[in-house]
Design a protein around this nucleic acid. Structure first.
Lengths: 362, 362
DNA sequence: AATTTTTATTTGTCCGTATATATTCAGAAA
DNA sequence: TTTCTGAATATATACGGACAAATAAAAATT
């Protein structure tokens, strides 16, 4: 575990802080004694004291010698005119995310809000750290892109705290299944369907699919891929379907496509549907290395219409992601929630096909 | 004795505090090690740590693991725990900037700072608006990338205000000529020189240069381009040199390269030095459209080693920009200035050539 | 019943030890 | 000369124990 390198007293500190912030402990309530905590967590009393000492120092707890340790009353962080919005995304430097951030930044600036930026690197523990930090300071609202949305939400309690604090938030790209809040996303299922249908209509019958399935976007795109096969009565061999996680994105799909392409001609897929353009570009490179040509030997489609899609010699057929537009709408939606306290409906973008040079009639 | 009832760690704390306040210890001076103090006062190291820990907590001392414990510089009144750093760049979604932001974000998060993000879109009036907003709110420090640094600094007064407010800031990529503050940049002049020299050593004699000259980075790269010509005693025709501004970046260079390539063979440049990879990719596209081949017909070099450099079929020869590393160092430097009030020296990265497939011996 | 005393509990102070990790610097290696 | 390596040194984390001081509840006394 990564927790290994985090000092025990900090882990404990975080744990106790979560008790307070989640409402498990109320103000002025007595917390377990130092000995009890030490026994419960198998720590020395010294270590417990270090954690409690810092929390006392930061104002979360107060101690009375001979009596016990108690939760402080929440320092009223006077609502005041803060006008700060935080955006919490998985990545900030890669792929289409900078464009989303930029759209949000532009809109927020126009409306007089400051933008706090945070990224999770697709790591749920970092997501937790950020949420924890966000809760402790005045904030008008949050724009959140879920981290590994297909793998549940261990940080649910923090989102509930946000509700309790009446800090509004919207989700982009996807939403944790167990939560209900405004979502700004595109119809990934339909996008996957459209791309697959396009290939089927070009005469392709053996279509490979590569999908990242640790987030719900990938799962939805995969769903559309399968539905297209069903509606056109095409058999879908599991050998033509690859799912991978974020950690595997630079290895597993690249290795598999290599073995795919060396299959016998009757078996070999004549087209590939990729989770996104980033993967498509990488597969394109492997295909080139194997001496095959796109689109003559094999067709390939991406997803998102990122800058990658047109940077290469073979421009990709793809489905555009709203990118900056999504950031703008997310910011606008959030500001509505903040300033007018309105109930908001989800925004779902309809995908449309952009046909370029990477697909060809068989 | 009265001292009898006062805890030892408090006595020690008082003692050390008197050293600082009496001037016996000066700011940034190293105080004796924990062991030395423990021996001197006949206390356990634990007790010494307790005293030093509280003094550190109150801001009188700072510790560096492996190095020692030092006296802090007296901070000015308006310190209050803000722990917010703003980063003000020209763009946030394009090119290498997201990577710089990401490096800074990562470091700041680790050190417990929040990141406020703002972009100027290379517009000096937006830079002014942002600076104005920044000044009005508590801020620990600023990371700034100058906007059109070659065209002077009309917002100088805001930077002077920052000085007066004792809000530290560092500049990245470039620094306005009229200002002196820590800069983290790369040696662009040398980078331009290296790329040009590389082409000269490959036998090229007519080398075109395309440089964006509204920022000092472009001017420096151009300077290196010219110096290489001089040192190798090559004539440099002004017809082979193109300068452009940010606003023209999608038009002027593309049109000019088209007319360049249609010149007579004796006149035609055999290689092109581009301001950055972004331009190189665009020129590459034009060259392909004209039916010419890189590197067989013409060599081309980029700058920055961005994701573009390897996304295309012809991988670019280029000079890498530190990107995320620069963001990290900028954040670290700024935090040093904030927390220790230290004087900081510039950091200048030395460029090195990455030779790929876009250049060839003539 | 009210008060005082005792006792157990809880935090505060203080000491000891061990290991981990970061930094510095002298000496070896290139 | 520069670069790398390892030893020495510094702080960081963690465990253990002991006793002191304050508190609260139980017991004993008035």
């Amino acid at each position: 575990m990564k927790e290994k390198s985090v000092p025990k007293y900090l882990q404990l500190k975080r744990e106790i802080l979560s008790w307070i912030q989640s409402g498990k402990l109320s103000p002025n309530e007595k917390i377990p004694t130092e000995h009890e905590i030490a026994n419960q967590f198998q720590l020395s009393r010294h270590t417990v004291r270090q954690a409690l000492g810092e929390l006392e120092n930061e104002g979360w707890l107060y101690k009375i010698q001979g009596s016990g340790t108690f939760v402080s009353k929440p320092k009223l962080a006077s609502k005041q005119e803060v006008k700060t919005v935080a955006i919490l995304t998985t990545y900030i430097s890669d792929y289409i995310f900078p464009h989303i951030v930029r759209g949000a930044e532009e809109t927020l600036r126009e409306k007089g809000y400051r933008l706090l930026l945070a990224s999770t690197d697709n790591d749920k523990t970092k997501e937790r750290d950020h949420l924890e930090a966000m809760i402790q300071q005045p904030l008008s609202g949050l724009i959140i892109e879920p981290t590994k949305s297909a793998q549940g939400n261990p940080n649910l309690s923090y989102y509930l705290t946000l509700n309790n604090l009446h800090i509004p938030y919207v989700m982009i790209n996807e939403c944790y299944l167990e939560m209900s809040c405004p979502v700004i996303k595109m119809d990934d299922e339909k996008g996957g369907y459209l791309l697959t249908e396009h290939l089927i209509q070009l005469g392709h019958r053996r279509i490979a699919g590569f999908f990242k399935t640790d987030d719900l976007q990938g799962v939805s795109r995969l769903k559309g891929f399968i539905r297209a096969h069903q509606e056109y009565n095409l058999p879908l061999s599991s050998r033509h379907l690859v799912t991978y996680t974020t950690e595997e994105k630079d290895t597993k799909p690249l290795e598999l496509v290599r073995s795919f392409l060396q299959q016998a001609d009757v078996e070999r897929a004549t087209a590939i549907v990729c989770y996104n353009d980033e993967l498509a570009i990488k597969l394109l490179d492997v295909i080139r290395q194997l001496g095959l040509n796109v689109p003559d030997d094999i067709s390939i489609v991406g997803f998102d219409d990122s800058t990658f899609a047109t940077a290469t010699e073979v421009k990709l057929t793809t489905v555009p992601h709203p990118k900056a537009e999504m950031g703008i709408r997310a910011a606008e939606t959030l500001i509505q929630m903040i300033e007018r306290n309105e109930e908001i409906q989800d925004i779902i973008y309809q995908p449309e096909l952009i046909i370029r040079e990477s697909t060809k009639k068989i």
